[in-house]
C-alpha cells in the first residue's frame, strides 16, 4: 500500500532534516486508525443495517449484528405495506428534492452574488435582514406560514415545499455562498469588467465556476434537508399518494399500538442510499473538480 503522492516525496527530498519514516508503515497506521475510529462512530449505522435483516421480533434483543436467521422480509413487507407504497414515496421525494435543489441553487447564488460583489443602496440593511430571518426559531413561523399556504389553496400540493426555495428563503445558503464568493480575489471580476463583461456574464462565467464548492455544498445540504424533511410534508401533504419517504417511514411507528421496526429500519437503510450516492457523485465532481480546474 504505497499511498504517497508524487508531490510529497519531492517536498521531503528538499528538506532532509525531517525524520525519515517508512511511508508504507505510516500509511498503514494512519488507515488503521481511521478505520478504528470509523467503526466506533458508525456502529449504530452498521447495527441499523444489520437490524434490517433480522426477524422483526428479535431486533431489539441486543447489540449484536446477527440474529437467529437472516431475512429479507422486512424489505419485502416494508416496500409496499398495505396502502403504503415506497416506490411512490421515493419518486415523490425525488421530485420535491430535485425541484428544491434547483430553486435553491438559482435563487441563492444570484442573491449571494449581489451581496458579495455589488454595491447598492440599503445593502447593509438588507444583509442584516437576511441574517435576521435565520434567528427566529421556525416553530413560531410555522402557524402563520400554514395559514398563508392554506389561503393560497396549496394544501395537498408540493408547492409549499418547493416554491419557497425558488425565492431564496434559505438565508443559510445565501450567507454561505456570500462567504465563499468573498474569498475569491476581486481582481478576477475587475479584469473581466475591464474586458467589458456585464454583471450577468461575470456571475455566470467567472464567479459561478469558481464557487463550485459552495454550489456543491448547497446542493448537498439541500438534498439532505429536503430528503429528510418531515414536518413540511406532514403539514402540507395529506393524501398518501403524495407522501414523501419520511412520512412513509414515520407511519411504521405507532406510539399507541404496534410499531413495525423491521420495515422501518429496512426502509431507512434504503432511504439513505440516494443521499450517499449523491454525496459520492457530487464530491467527485465538485470537491475534486475544483482543485484541478479552479485556482491553479
Amino acid at each position: 500500500m504505497t499511498t504517497t503522492t508524487p508531490t510529497r516525496p519531492a517536498a521531503r527530498t528538499i528538506y532532509p532534516t525531517k525524520k525519515v519514516t517508512n511511508p508504507v508503515l505510516t500509511a498503514v497506521i494512519r488507515h488503521a486508525l481511521i478505520i478504528c475510529f470509523l467503526v466506533i462512530m458508525l456502529y449504530p449505522v452498521i447495527w441499523m443495517v444489520a437490524a434490517s435483516f433480522k426477524p422483526e421480533n428479535e431486533i431489539f434483543n441486543g447489540l449484536g449484528l446477527f440474529a437467529s436467521r437472516f431475512t429479507l422480509e422486512n424489505y419485502a413487507s416494508g416496500w409496499s405495506a398495505g396502502s403504503l407504497n415506497f416506490s411512490r414515496y421515493f419518486m415523490n421525494s425525488f421530485l420535491v428534492t430535485v425541484l428544491s435543489i434547483a430553486g435553491n441553487l438559482v435563487a441563492c447564488s444570484i442573491t449571494a452574488y449581489a451581496f458579495a460583489r455589488l454595491e447598492f443602496p440599503f445593502k447593509k440593511f438588507l444583509f442584516a435582514l437576511l441574517l435576521g430571518t435565520m434567528l427566529l426559531p421556525s416553530q413560531v413561523t410555522m402557524v402563520p406560514q400554514y395559514i398563508l399556504f392554506n389561503q393560497l389553496e396549496w394544501i395537498n400540493t408540493y408547492l409549499p415545499l418547493v416554491v419557497p426555495h425558488w425565492f431564496g428563503v434559505d438565508a443559510f445558503f445565501i450567507f454561505l455562498m456570500v462567504q465563499f464568493i468573498r474569498t475569491l480575489p476581486r481582481e478576477l471580476d475587475e479584469s473581466a469588467r475591464i474586458d467589458g463583461c456585464g454583471h450577468f456574464r461575470i456571475f455566470s462565467r467567472i464567479i459561478l465556476p469558481l464557487a463550485m464548492p459552495a454550489i456543491g455544498t448547497t446542493a448537498m445540504f439541500t438534498f439532505i434537508n429536503t430528503w429528510n424533511d418531515f414536518l413540511g410534508p406532514l403539514l402540507y401533504l395529506n393524501r398518501t399518494e403524495l407522501w414523501t419517504v419520511p412520512l412513509g417511514l414515520s407511519a411504521f411507528l405507532d406510539a399507541t399500538s404496534e410499531s413495525a421496526f423491521g420495515p422501518l429500519f429496512a426502509m431507512s437503510v434504503l432511504s439513505l442510499a440516494p443521499i450517499v450516492g449523491f454525496f459520492i457523485v457530487s464530491q467527485r465532481l465538485l470537491l475534486e473538480g475544483v482543485a484541478t480546474t479552479g485556482l491553479k
Binding site: A107, T111, L130, L136, T141, G168, V169
Partner: peptide, 21 residues
C-alpha cells in the same frame, strides 16, 4: 443590476418570510 439579482429574494422575503415573522 444588484436589485435585478435580488428580485426573487426580495419577493420571497416580503411574501413568504416577513409576514409570518
Amino acid at each position: 443590476a444588484a436589485y435585478v439579482f435580488l428580485i426573487p429574494w426580495i419577493l420571497g422575503m416580503i411574501l413568504l418570510t416577513l409576514g409570518p415573522m
